[in-house]
Amino acid sequence: MDWQAIGLSVRLATLVCAILLILGLPIAYWLTFSRRRWTFLVESVVALPLVLPPTVLGFYVLMAIGARSPVGRAWEHWTGHGLAFTFEGLVLASILYSLPFAVQPIAAAFSQVDVSLLEASALLGSSRWRTFTRVLAPLSLQGIITGAVLSFAHTLGEFGVVLMVGGNLPGVTRTVSIAIYDQVQGFDYAAANATALLLLVFSFAVLSVVYGLTRKPWSVTRS
């Protein structure tokens, strides 16, 4: 089993999940509460990765971070090496690719919170930040957890974008799904099966734990 690839994938998914929470909460907040007319345009941009083929997204990210692009040149200036085919490049691409999986459940949870609770908080003297931390976030916890888990799981399993942006460098950009692909290409079905099964069991376990902790779909709501 390719433990190096598994470790790399877990590291990538954890990092992307953490960054997406930091980015996703304000984006979801803005999408939910902004009254600007062009909010829907931002919403569409955020949702693009849901419908775009990963290769298309990967291609544009590669163009955007390549050695000839301003972003790529700036990164090279700061760090001394390019962004394409590196772990950092992979993180950036994965953030874009998994953005809707973090933002949409959080925004959905925010919009379910009764606005009068937020107004009551303001009228009791609380700043927007305190209203967010004390009322909005606790009441949206299930959506936030769902967003975190989905973006983690989605990053763990991504393939097309990784291949386009990161290539297949062991220990740097060779994630678990690419390892599986490699093993199948080399007719090593036993190894592919072991890795795939591990990923399957792990994904199922994480989702079960989270949904088990946060959801009560069959319980009757007390009035």
């Binding site: 009764d114 009068s116 609770l117 107004e119 009551a120 908080s121 009322v135 606790p138 009441l139």
Partner: peptide, 9 residues
């Protein structure tokens, strides 16, 4: 508020 808006949590 009409619906009182007590914080449920």
């Amino acid at each position: 508020f009409q619906q009182l808006a007590l914080f449920p949590h």
